[in-house]
Structures are given as structure tokens and as C-alpha cells.
Design a protein around this nucleic acid. Structure first.
Lengths: 191, 191
DNA sequence: TTCCGGGTAGACAAATCTGTCTACTTCAAC
DNA sequence: GTTGAAGTAGACAGATTTGTCTACCCGGAA
């Protein structure tokens, strides 16, 4: 099947990009790992950058799904004001992610680092992902009935990104829990 | 002079690494830009990684100095509770940085992205830098007379890193101002 | 003057990178 | 059974990478 070959390629590439980075992962490595021929790759993608964009799109999609399920699963376990529960569950989801063996930062932050030009397609895909996460966080604030949830959502997004940097660059495995406590305080401040 | 040659090399390398990334910046480019011979580079540094570590060390040093002067300059301009002034000045300093033309994220976050292995010297230098920043932030909290300033300092550090990601990856130029407002709320919550 | 440390200029090796191309295979549809 | 799309295997080009090495030069100290 054609789509299966393509999907397998994107999956393998995404895994290697997340683990080792973009420049450090050569095309040949992706091919060897996936068992796909070089011609097949260039039949589906015009260039390595094109493959990278596809991998980021898949990650964006997967991440959104993972976020939804984690929030649905963890929300009932939260204590305190039930209106805060979804947001707090989100940070618990981050905590699980940071503690997983495969964690090596946010691939979108990493991609922006390797492709700093703001106008290149890769960097643009990263920007789009961050907007998508922001929208998800805004959704978590629905129950709070704030006049304008946008600024609070931005602040919570800052905390989330900061936690990722703290966990990856700073090596602080407890970053998500500090962020969760800060989120609780921010929420209280806005209520 | 020997040290001048070495310093010039590190300065040039740092500039290029910040602008274009690490893998994307070849040794030859650093040499051409700096006008230094290849042999001289390998006389001072054992490898490209070694040069990277030296560049990060310089950036760590420069950043600490820039932080100190920015805080000294911007603290008197803050309004409200004067005990918060140094912290708020710190976020104004971030704001200036983000709006500068040369801004392309935090080089330590970027380096961690390109060198994900936590046990390599480059990644370790990034971790050390984040600890140094954390200590600086703790220093800003001295006037608050908190029983334990450490957790608040961590939360403010999360906000700062998140603002960097928001400004670079997310393309949000106002990230520092959102972070500043969040910092004000966090400070109020801890007082 | 002589010597030598430290610099320049750049050839070179060996590996690696992306991307193209040829030749062969496999498989499904007609 | 034939045809054609899509995949495999891998050689190849051309550029680029890090790092080494030779040959030369300059300027200060003995």
C-alpha cells in the first residue's frame, strides 16, 4: 500500500528527529531504520525539509490527541475547585510526559532552534502548533466563565513551555509540578 | 596576542551559533568570518564541540552581566510594591531582548535541542546556565523576606523560559509582557 | 643573528550529506 | 497474460563536514 509506506516513513522519521534532532538525523538513517528505498522517499517527499514538515504535522496531530485523552483521564482525579480541574490535569499530563523515557523536549521548540529563520516552512509549522495548543488551553478555561480567557491562556501556555525547557534543558524532572502549582496560583488570581 | 585570537574566535563562533544554529554553522564558516587559520582553531580547541562549550561559557558570562545591568537600570522605573521591582525589571529586560533584531531564542535551549543527550558536555553546560539564572532570580527575591524563596524562583524561571519559547518558537513578541503580568500575580500570591 | 612560538594559507583525507538515476522486482487491474 | 504503477537496491554525483598536516611567515627574545 502506498499510504502505508509513506506513513511508516513519517513515523520513523519523527521518532529519530525527536530522539536525535534534525540535522543529526540523516536521510540514510531514516531509510535504513524504516527499510524503505531512497527512491520511495523522494517519490513521496520533495526534500528532507518536506519530510520534516510532514513529521511535524503528524506530531501536532498526535500531540493534540494525547492531550485530549490525558485531560479526560486525569481531570476527575483533581482536588480543590472543580473548575480548575481540567487545567491541572493538563499539567499532570505534562508530568507524565516528562517522566517518560522517550522525552527529549518539545520537537517544535527543537525545530525552531535548528531552523531559526521565522519565514521557513518548518518554523511556521512550529508557530502553528503553538497556536493550536493555545486554543486547547483556552478550551480548558471554558468552565471558568471569564470575560476574556485569552490572557490567562497565554500565561498558562508560557508555564507549559517553560516547564518543557526546565525539564529538558535544565534537567529538572519536577518542572511540571512547579508549573502546576504556579498554574493554580494564576487561576486563583484570575477568578 | 594569543588570547586575543582565541577570544575573537569564540566571539565569532558565538554570533554564528546564535544566528544560524550549531550544526548549520560549519567550522569553515567560523574561520572565514573571523579571518583565523584552521590550525589556530585546533591549536586552541580540540574539536568543534570544544569550541561550542567555550562559546556557551562566554554567553553564560555575558548574559549574567547583561542581566545585572538591565536589572539595575530598569528597577527604578517599576510601579507598585517596591519589593517586586527587581523581578519586574528582569522581565522588562527580557522584553528588550526579545525585541532586538538579533534575538533568536535562548542559545542554551537551542543547544539542548541540537545535542539532546543529557550526559554530553554541551548539554551539561546548558544545565549549568539554567542553574545560574535560577540563582540570580533567587537573588532578586531577597527583599521579599520569604521563608523559602526557592519554589517561587523556580516558578519565575519557568515563566522566563516559557516567554523565550513563546517569543521564538511561537513568534509572540509580547511574550515578555504576558510573563511580567503573570510574575506580578505569582509574587502577590506568595506574599 | 638565530631561533622558535604562534600565526597564515590551504591541500588533503575520510566521512557524510542530499538528491538523482538506472535496473530489477512485485503485484494488482484489466 | 500483459501492462503499468510503485517499490527495492544501490551506484553515483556533487557538495560539505571535521580534523590533520605541510609549508611558509613574522616578530620578539636570547
Amino acid at each position: 500500500m502506498s499510504t502505508s509506506r509513506r506513513d511508516h516513513l513519517v513515523e520513523t522519521a519523527l521518532h529519530l528527529f525527536m530522539r536525535d534532532g534534525f540535522h543529526a538525523t540523516g536521510i540514510d538513517r531514516v531509510l535504513k531504520e524504516s527499510g524503505v528505498a531512497k527512491k520511495t522517499l523522494y517519490n513521496h517527499f520533495s526534500s528532507k525539509d518536506d519530510l520534516i514538515v510532514a513529521a511535524l504535522a503528524k506530531r501536532d496531530h498526535d500531540f493534540a490527541a494525547k492531550m485530549r485523552t490525558a485531560i479526560a483521564r486525569l481531570t476527575p482525579q483533581q482536588t480543590g475547585d472543580p473548575r480548575m480541574a481540567p487545567v491541572l490535569a493538563f499539567f499532570d499530563g505534562l508530568d507524565e510526559w516528562f517522566r517518560s523515557d522517550s522525552f527529549s523536549g518539545c520537537i517544535f521548540i527543537n525545530a525552531s532552534a535548528e531552523y531559526p529563520r521565522a519565514d521557513c516552512p518548518i518554523h511556521r509549522a512550529c508557530e502553528a502548533h503553538k497556536l493550536q495548543v493555545l486554543a486547547t488551553i483556552e478550551g480548558l478555561l471554558a468552565g471558568l466563565e471569564l470575560p476574556d480567557p485569552a490572557p490567562l491562556a497565554r500565561q498558562l501556555a508560557l508555564l507549559a513551555d517553560g516547564a518543557i525547557a526546565g525539564a529538558h534543558t535544565g534537567g529538572d524532572r519536577a518542572a511540571a509540578r512547579h508549573a502546576k502549582d504556579a498554574a493554580r496560583r494564576l487561576l486563583a488570581s484570575w477568578l
